[in-house]
Amino acid sequence: MDTSTALFYVFSAVLLVAAFRVITARSAVHSALFLVLAFFSASCVWLLLRAEFLAISLVLVYVGAVMVLFLFVVMMLDINVDALRVGFWKHFPVAAIVGVVIVLEMALVLIPGFDVVNAPPADAKSISMGNTKLLGIEIYTNYLYPLQIAALILLVAIIAAIALTLRQRKDSKAIDPSQQVKVKKADRLRIVKMQPVVEPPPAPPAPPAAPAGETK
């Protein structure tokens, strides 16, 4: 076993453990951190497969942007994860069976791609171009229509997310920018003239004096 094979098994084991901890950790923050570890492990596996562009993109896009956003959302919303995990172990066997079936199907599809022994040798032109340029040529020639379909699906997801977050709520205070622009200076400020000094009220009259010889 050479060094690359040993590193592949190490990174794959870390990836599987981190992915399992993502769905079993009790804290949402811990799940997000384990997901970051899973992304790093996947990028290391891609580096071993000489897919440097995909590895760097995974680190920059998902770890650097998406996961930071997830952590901010989790910490700001203060989600009660215990209430969401009610009945998790009840449905775990069915979910495990479905997950195993998905893994087996993906393995049947992806295993032929790891057959580097019978792979055709790379020519000098492909080596000089680099895998980033070759990936771009492959995507925008042979996989152009799947790329457009994926972009359309992402566009629909973005529109759906915006539509869900822009619902009218009675407990929220919204500001209409058009109404703010129409406001004039006279509507915002009213000048009231007041005297600088207010005269004190007059003193009440003294009670009449009692006649001489009368006692209370």
Rank of each mutant, 00 (worst) to 15 (best):
Y62M: 00
V100F: 14
I79G: 00
T24V: 11
E214I: 06
D2C: 14
L152G: 13
M129H: 10
L189H: 03
Y62N: 05
H30L: 11
P120R: 05
A65N: 08
P112S: 11
F20N: 12
L60E: 13
I149P: 01
L154N: 09
V14L: 13
R21V: 07
I111F: 11
L58Y: 06
A32Y: 00
P205N: 14
L47C: 09
N131M: 05
V63W: 06
G87V: 06
A210F: 09
S178W: 04
V156K: 09
P200Y: 03
V36T: 14
G213N: 14
T5M: 07
V116R: 01
I149G: 04
F88M: 05
L135A: 02
A212S: 13
L48E: 02
P93L: 00
I175C: 07
Y62F: 12
D123H: 07
P112M: 08
V63M: 11
V66M: 15
S41K: 00
M75H: 07
G99E: 01
T5P: 02
F114L: 06
Y143G: 04
L16Y: 04
V94T: 12
K182Y: 04
M1C: 11
G213C: 04
K173H: 04
W46F: 09
L7R: 14
I79R: 11
Y9E: 09
K185Q: 03
K193L: 13
Y62C: 01
L144D: 12
A13H: 10
M67W: 10
K193G: 08
F20V: 03
